[in-house]
């Protein structure tokens, strides 16, 4: 099976007392190995809910979910933790780094809980992951000493360090300005070109153009799936990028 992800009729209902919200109403989704997928949709449409299920951070109410050929639907809590540790790298909108902890230690964190012994030298793996996201010179910086973009790079490095089958990112550029967003996208693009499957959520079409396929979701159902015919090149765009405010200032100065 070439599919890294295969979801069949997955639903998710949140219960709060006697109220219940059906956030997902039957998702069928397949993601091939090496794909770079963007999930888009209006606020409250269920994107984060879907990502959390994909990332095994939460369990679906019904339906089947195959991740890397493993049916994870019926797994125990500890097995879920194992799947998260082995097969998934998750990037959050709010970075979710441990405060007062160096970039290196943050990236090392998933390897702390590695029960497979796949990665022989955790520290070296963490250094390499940080180098891959261009932070080879920021190993000992703590989150408070890093810019938002840099913190998100640390989070991406942490998502990479366990050599996951898939990297999931829920609005990874949601807290970043345009230039830094493109910068972060260039990191994802590079990783994808190296063969890593990436699924990300974004609101911004400008960001989605750097992926290969866009899935649109509304009211908990996938409405549309379109291939991006000519994906942008984030690295090039970044070089050509001109800050509108700077432009204005420059014009005013002349």
């Amino acid at each position: 099976m070439p599919h890294v992800i295969k979801m069949k009729r997955v639903t998710k209902t949140y219960r709060m007392g006697d109220m219940s919200v059906q956030a997902l109403r039957g998702i069928d989704l397949e993601v091939e190995r090496g794909e770079f997928l963007a999930i888009m949709g209006p606020s409250g449409s269920g994107k984060s809910t879907l990502m959390n299920l994909l990332g095994c951070l939460d369990k679906p109410t019904s339906g089947e979910y195959f991740l890397d050929d493993v049916n994870v639907s019926g797994l125990s809590k500890n097995e879920y933790a194992g799947i998260r540790n082995e097969k998934i790298g998750f990037v959050f909108q709010t970075y979710n780094l441990l405060p007062r902890t160096s970039a290196l230690e943050n990236v090392e964190l998933p390897l702390f809980y590695d029960r497979t012994g796949r990665i022989k030298n955790p520290k070296q793996a963490a250094v390499e992951a940080l180098a891959r996201v261009g932070l080879g010179d920021r190993l000992h910086h703590e989150p408070s000493q890093l810019s938002g973009g840099e913190q998100q790079r640390v989070a991406i490095a942490r998502a990479l360090v366990n050599q996951p089958a898939i990297v999931l990112a829920d609005e990874p550029t949601g807290n970043l300005d345009t230039r830094v967003s493109i910068d972060v996208m260039s990191v994802f693009q590079e990783l994808n070109q190296e063969g890593i499957t990436v699924v990300l959520v974004t609101h911004e079409p400008d960001i989605a153009v750097y992926t290969n396929r866009i899935v649109k979701i509304r009211d908990g159902i996938i409405r549309q799936s379109t291939a991006v015919l000519k994906p942008g090149n984030a690295k090039k765009d970044l070089e050509a990028y001109r800050d509108p405010v700077e432009d204005e200032l420059e014009k005013a100065g002349q």
Partner: peptide, 19 residues
């Protein structure tokens, strides 16, 4: 409060509750 977030982070990268 702070610790619960930290626990969330640890759980999300694959720690078991027992860990």
């Amino acid at each position: 409060t702070e610790r619960t977030r930290e626990i969330g982070i640890r759980l999300s990268v694959g720690a078991r509750s027992s860990d």
